[in-house]
């Protein structure tokens, strides 16, 4: 494939870098405690927390680096860090 002229690139390629492999701890989302406030989605530095049909947060573990910011900021303690099992 030809290289992008002058080191340019079309969008979309970053997705190929699956940063989920960096993770040593993994956030587990407990929907029974969740109030769907959206804080976790807002504070995720990866922008990898989406929503399911019911409005509950769903992390994309392909990209979640396991930083724990969502756990720290969740006002309902509805997310817990668990050791990653690989």
């Amino acid at each position: 494939m030809a290289l992008g002229l002058g080191c340019s690139a079309k969008p979309g390629k970053a997705k190929e870098n699956r940063t989920g492999s960096w993770r040593t701890f993994r956030p587990e989302f407990m929907h029974e405690k969740c109030t769907k406030c959206g804080m976790c989605t807002q504070v995720c530095p990866e922008g990898c927390i989406g929503e399911d049909d019911l409005g509950f947060p769903v992390p994309d573990y392909d990209y979640c680096k396991g930083c724990g910011l969502c756990v720290e900021e969740c006002p309902s303690q509805a997310i817990e860090m668990k050791k990653e099992e690989k």
Binding site: A14, P45, V58, C67
Partner: peptide
């Protein structure tokens, strides 16, 4: 599951975990 996210700043960047600059 409809957990798809679509931000103009894309997943897969190499910032440290918990990076404020990425959030910015």
């Amino acid at each position: 599951m409809t957990g798809e996210t679509c931000h103009l700043f894309e997943v897969g960047h190499r910032a440290c975990g918990g990076c404020a600059a990425a959030l910015v």
